[in-house]
């Protein structure tokens, strides 16, 4: 799949933003006043910034409001609702903390649940794609949610929780890759089922329908990332989990180390999310003799 920068930025940044909102919603850290303001501002910058970035890949962003209409069937529509509900709920909860020094517990818990629900709906947009076997698995929402919660813990300064959750997210990430590498072969789709000519003999794509490229090849048959996949995976897991862990464990833990840990984690998540798209094989590539 074509790794569109807007979608990678959106799902990585808003994943961390909604993760932080979830932690703030359950009162960890229990901040009020100006400190709360800074935490909420950071969370909103990440979450809303990501959402705005996601509209950049639309052909008609001016019609984006129509995307709220089909929540009965469409995960993208559900994501729109969940994100707005989470942001509004957390805004009311945050206003209580910042301006009135009051913690509205029910609102916070609801907001935390809605924040994680938003991350789940984002993941489900990809998970539902049977055409992309690498995504069509329970590992995708686990991967998105574990990264969001771990990144949120890191941002929320929950050092012990962050260390445990980072290790967990790293394990889920490796399991996701392991399963993903076998997904296309296990999907049962190949050139024999695509053309239904398999019973006659071995099928080979002889000539594509066009001499140039097209939308389908640009969007679905992206092969550049695969050559360096292993190196990029090592880089992703190092930046996402190992380096932040080392920084959190270092005896001279202070704000600079924490900031570095966050930046390293974010860079790792972006690398992992880039691979999530660049490595994903869409079955339409089979018709072109590619994957």
């Amino acid at each position: 799949m074509h790794p569109a920068p807007s979608v990678i930025l959106f799902s990585s940044l808003s994943g961390m933003g909604f993760g932080l909102l979830a932690w703030l919603g359950i009162g960890l850290p229990a901040v009020t006043g100006w400190v709360a303001f800074v935490f909420f501002a950071l969370a909103y910058l990440l979450a809303v910034g990501g959402l705005i970035a996601s509209t950049f890949h639309l052909g008609h962003p001016e019609r984006a409001l129509k995307a709220f209409s089909q929540w009965r069937s469409s995960w993208l529509s559900r994501e729109a609702w969940a994100s707005v509900a989470a942001l509004l709920t957390m805004a009311a909860y945050g206003a209580g903390l910042v301006f009135y020094d009051t913690r509205l517990w029910p609102l916070g818990l609801l907001g935390a649940a809605l924040s994680l629900l938003t991350v789940l709906t984002t993941a489900m947009i990809y998970t539902q794609m049977k055409t992309v076997p690498r995504w069509h698995s329970v590992m995708t929402p686990l991967n998105f949610l574990s990264l969001s919660i771990a990144g949120g813990a890191l941002l929320a300064g929950q050092v012990t929780a962050a260390m445990v959750l980072l290790v967990l997210a790293g394990a889920v990430q490796i399991a996701t890759w392991w399963r993903g590498d076998r997904a296309l072969a296990a999907s049962g789709s190949d050139i024999a089922t695509a053309t239904r000519l398999g019973e006659k003999g071995s099928v080979r794509a002889f000539e594509p329908p066009h001499t140039g490229s097209n939308y389908l090849l640009r969007e679905f048959v992206y092969q550049i990332g695969r050559k360096h996949a292993l190196k990029l995976r090592v880089i992703a897991i190092t930046l996402m989990v190992l380096l932040p862990l080392l920084l959190l464990l270092s005896p001279v833990f202070h704000h600079l180390a924490a900031a570095l840990a966050v930046l390293s984690h974010a860079a790792g998540v972006l690398t992992s999310r880039w691979l999530f798209f660049a490595q994903a094989e869409h079955v339409v590539g089979i018709y072109y003799g590619k994957r």
Binding site: L197, V203, R204, A205, F206, E207, P208
Partner: peptide, 8 residues
């Protein structure tokens, strides 16, 4: 679009 396949 029209693809072409070789069946052996």
């Amino acid at each position: 679009r029209v693809h072409s396949y070789e069946v052996q």
